[in-house]
């Protein structure tokens, strides 16, 4: 197939996929079962007598008991947040595997955004400088570029 048709085809496929995802997302999802909710909570809690494992992943005595208590509290009609809180009341925030402070979530994102921003500015500013200098917007061809081209061409011919 000629490659020129591939890209329009790809655009069409992406559009169709977007439509499909919207349909899938909009279809009323069945509410998560109690087991799923319980597993979710257990996955967010730190097993007290393990090292860094979650209650969902651990088979220690405490983890088994915590899973039982989660089940018990959910059956009694408590909300997931209330269940989590009942363990925070006993162990403090230490028992939550995801820190609740917004900083813990924002800082990695901010650092990454700042780095991407700095990179973008660096690349665009250099382009401007070259343009203003009257040259091409793209970096000039160098010895290294030529060596590179020649190297690849040779590899094909060898």
């Amino acid at each position: 197939m000629p490659r020129t048709y591939a890209f329009p085809l790809a655009l069409g496929a992406l559009l169709a996929l977007a439509g499909l995802l919207v349909v899938v997302a909009l279809r009323p999802a069945s509410a998560p079962s109690r087991e799923e909710v319980a597993r979710q909570i257990a996955g967010d809690l730190r097993c007290p007598d393990c090292q860094g494992l979650s209650v969902a992943d651990s088979n220690s005595g405490s983890a088994v008991e915590i899973r039982r208590q989660i089940e018990e509290q959910l059956t009694a009609g408590r909300s997931p947040d209330e269940v989590r809180q009942s363990f925070v009341d006993r162990y403090g925030e230490w028992i939550l595997l995801s820190p609740t402070a917004p900083l813990a979530w924002l800082l990695p994102a901010l650092v990454l955004l700042a780095a991407v921003g700095a990179l973008t500015v660096w690349i665009w500013r250099a382009r401007r400088t070259r343009e203003r200098a009257g040259g091409s917007a793209d970096p000039p061809v160098t010895e290294l570029d030529r060596a590179r081209v020649r190297e690849e061409a040779e590899a094909l011919d060898a």
Partner: peptide
């Protein structure tokens, strides 16, 4: 992110005295 998550509990404890955890979900 990995270094931050590994050292975060230590830093929080040093600065505020609170004990927190950072685990797989984060």
């Amino acid at each position: 992110a990995v270094l931050f998550g590994t050292l975060y509990p230590l830093a929080v404890e040093a600065l505020s005295g609170d004990t927190v955890s950072v685990g797989a979900p984060w």
